[in-house]
């Protein structure tokens, strides 16, 4: 760095451009293009009429942009049997998502709380076991669980899929809250006990209000995870509750005749919209969620 550079104001004293820096920015630019390309192509394809798509200008901007494909994807795209659009799947996913996120966080936080602050016998064994089983692929449980739920009279239903999401979210949620509660000063907990507060009182009045940041992380993690789920929804939700991912796959992959690529891409974007909104809206919280839930496969 030259002597003159030292006298520049701090804001402008960022690294100077030299060949290595140019190379660095070129690398970042090209890799960023690779990551953005699919999103860009999705958007432009969804806004083009089929006549334009058939000409084959994949990367070109739409000449006469229209939202017809979006309307069709939402209201009248066919999923094999019915032609009511992907909105059916959207509302199914919302109905699955809301109770699943709430219940899995409730159960997970309670388990994490009991495992961290209360010295229950065997707590470490239970926790260790939960972390190990989180790695087992779903294929090991799916068939027995189908049998158990049909034996219990629940079959494939909204309740079944909510229970399933709670079960498979439990290890990550427990890990998240256990580690958070274990990091709080234990005096807080002791003081509450001396004042005569019971197990559930301390949980509801003291611990959960303090755990707001973890609840945010848990909501982000569970919302994206459950929204993006395909296999569990396919097996456990039942025909009337199929989530958006399953309907999307049916719309795109079970078409007869010529594919309506614009409708396909509009439906795909609609399905990706919620996780994208959560991701771009939450910023660093999303990364925090990944780091905290990194144990889950």
């Amino acid at each position: 760095m030259t002597a003159a550079a030292q006298f520049l104001p701090a804001a402008r004293r960022s690294k100077r451009m030299n060949p290595a820096r140019w190379g660095l920015y070129a690398f970042i630019f090209i890799t960023a293009l690779y990551f953005l390309l699919p999103l860009y192509v999705m958007v432009v394809t969804s806004l083009k009429p089929m006549a334009e798509i058939r000409q084959g200008n994949l990367l070109a901007l739409p000449m006469s942009p229209s939202v017809d494909a979006w309307v069709k994807a939402w209201t009248s795209a066919c999923t094999g049997l019915t032609c009511q659009g992907i909105r059916i799947g959207f509302f199914n996913s919302v109905r699955i998502l809301v109770p699943s996120v709430a219940i899995s966080i409730l159960v997970g936080s309670l388990t994490g709380y009991a495992l961290s602050l209360w010295r229950v016998r065997g707590a470490n064994i239970l926790f260790g076991a939960m972390m190990v089983v989180a790695f087992i692929p779903y294929q090991l449980f799916i068939y027995p669980l189908v049998r158990v739920f049909s034996f219990a009279g629940l079959g494939q239903s909204l309740l079944t899929i909510v229970i399933i999401h709670t079960i498979f979210g439990l290890p990550t949620m427990t890990l998240l809250f256990r580690n958070y509660f274990a990091s709080l000063p234990v005096e807080l907990f002791k003081a509450a006990r001396v004042d005569g507060a019971g197990f559930y009182q301390i949980y509801a009045r003291i611990m959960m209000p303090m755990a707001t940041p973890m609840v945010v992380v848990a909501v982000i993690l569970q919302t994206t995870g459950i929204w993006n789920d395909f296999i569990l929804g396919l097996v456990f939700a039942g025909r009337d509750n199929l989530p958006m991912t399953v309907q999307l796959n049916n719309i795109v992959n079970s078409t007869q005749g010529e594919r309506a690529y614009n409708v396909d891409m509009a439906a795909t974007l609609l399905t990706a919209l919620l996780p994208l909104a959560v991701y771009f809206g939450s910023g660093r919280w999303f990364v925090r969620g990944i780091a905290a839930g990194a144990v889950k496969g």
């Binding site: 960023a32 953005l36 699919p38 999705m42 993006n228 991912t245 999307l248 891409m265 959560v278 991701y279």
Partner: peptide
């Protein structure tokens, strides 16, 4: 830049698969 690199991770495998199916389609894709 970090957001650009990480956003695909927020999307489902179904969405990922369908987008790339379209991009790699030999008739009209890349």
């Amino acid at each position: 830049i970090r957001s650009i690199y990480l956003y695909p991770y927020s999307m489902s495998f179904i969405v990922t698969g369908l987008v790339w199916q379209w991009l790699l389609n030999p008739t009209l894709g890349i």
